[in-house]
């Protein structure tokens, strides 16, 4: 319980952002080398998609060059993308993702 309302302007912060954290959309991009199966696997393991959802995303990517995977906090978005990208690079796939603020 706030005893007294303190003056907010006396705060010294390096960047003036007290907005609510933004949410970020993660999209997966198409390429000619990454296999269907791999994309599905990544969707299921890293992004917790079901088989059906994963297939759907893979299809859409193939057709439309880009497909939305999900909306997350920045931290999670970055972390998941990093993980998926690393997995792809390990298999020599050039799979790429995009993170955009919502």
């Amino acid at each position: 319980m706030p005893q007294q309302e303190q003056e907010r302007q006396s705060r010294v912060i390096t960047r003036p952002s007290n907005r609510e954290p933004r949410r970020f959309r993660v999209s997966v991009l198409n390429d000619d080398f990454t296999t269907f199966e791999f994309v599905i696997m990544v969707m299921m393991t890293v992004f917790n998609k079901s088989m059906a959802e994963a297939e759907d995303i893979a299809e859409t990517t193939h057709i439309h060059q880009k497909s939305t995977v999900g909306v997350y906090s920045l931290d999670i978005a970055q972390s998941k993308v990093a993980k998926a990208t690393e997995m792809a690079r390990a298999e020599n796939y050039p799979l790429r993702f995009e993170i955009q603020p919502e």
Binding site: Q6, V12, I13, T14, R15, N18, E20, P21, F24, D75
Partner: peptide, 20 residues
């Protein structure tokens, strides 16, 4: 407190009454 778009930072700031 330096992180951008961080919920940890956001909640800390929200609930802090004195200055950082």
């Amino acid at each position: 407190f330096q992180l951008e778009d961080s919920y940890a930072r956001f909640y800390l700031e929200q609930n802090l009454e004195s200055s950082i």
